[in-house]
Design a protein around this nucleic acid. Sequence first.
DNA 1: CCCATATAGTTCAACTTTCAAGAAGTGGTC
DNA 2: GACCACTTCTTGAAAGTTGAACTATATGGG
Lengths: 171, 171
Amino acid sequence: MTTAPTGGGERETRWLTDDEQRVWRAYLHATTLFDDHLDRRLQRDAGMPHIYYGLLVQLSHAPGRSKRMTELAIDAKITRSRLSHAVARLEKNGWVRREECPSDKRGQNAILTDAGFAVLEKAAPGHVETVRQAMFDRLTPEQVEQLGEIMRVLAEGLQPEDSGADLPWLR
Amino acid sequence: MTTAPTGGGERETRWLTDDEQRVWRAYLHATTLFDDHLDRRLQRDAGMPHIYYGLLVQLSHAPGRSKRMTELAIDAKITRSRLSHAVARLEKNGWVRREECPSDKRGQNAILTDAGFAVLEKAAPGHVETVRQAMFDRLTPEQVEQLGEIMRVLAEGLQPEDSGADLPWLR
DNA sequence: CCCATATAGTTCAACTTTCAAGAAGTGGTC
DNA sequence: GACCACTTCTTGAAAGTTGAACTATATGGG
């Protein structure tokens, strides 16, 4: 649905050209496959979806391997609701634990446990290898640079997304 | 977890360079935001997630606005299981109906209804506009071309993904 | 101090996705 | 024509996601 000369009461829709459609489809195709690929690998190698893995990574980089929930949600680009569920699951796995925030009683800190760190340490090489094989081994250095720049531009335009859910600015 | 000089018994992991990490993060960031953005828009404007919309689009392009389930699954890059559930939902909405395949009694054809087509017609301009604003209005013509080529390369390397679920080659 | 309002995080219900069966049909082989 | 391997599609339960409602705490005036 991107080319038809429109049908209803519209005001000059700027439909995609054939070239644009091809790029758009290629984008959807590739990103879908990529996402699935990563998810499966990590599910297999680390027993969790990609985004959960990303949470552990975030924590591993944080001072004290600890982070406020909201901060973690923002960094991982997910809603607080989703994070709550995710951390609950990771906690059940023994990979993360929660601790009250001393300075703000509403707050919680998510903390990477040693077990969690171990899982990360074990899965990381395989994950990196996956990413490398699927992306960096296939692209020329120029393309890698182009991709980076393109993604930066796209992300920039998407940041201040409102939409009524949760906190407006929080995703 | 992409830079640390490793920790356990590994054989020379090819960690990502700082530049590669930046690109990788930019990629994740942008694609995540993009996906969320589209999903929300379509949920709001058409009452369904992006992938369901994609199914209707596929059908609208097919001869007779009809397609075999498996073919549809392959084109949409989803499992048949997922498609079954999705079509069930779309059928409940009255946007798709199922019909037995005459030549193969195992088969089902998914058919876009007039109501389904109407939904598509109504949502399409907004959807295209969303895509245009978020992607094509932001990139230079060169970047669009680069993006297309890069995505083609990435998809190429991901095609024959096995992994044990459903049919290996299907999805 | 007390209030209104904002923020942090969780929870609930509805929905989607996944995985592992399972029911039904096809096609080739002997 | 009975068997066997395979394909097509569906189902059910578990896991994950979403948006909205909710609890509790914080904050900045009056």
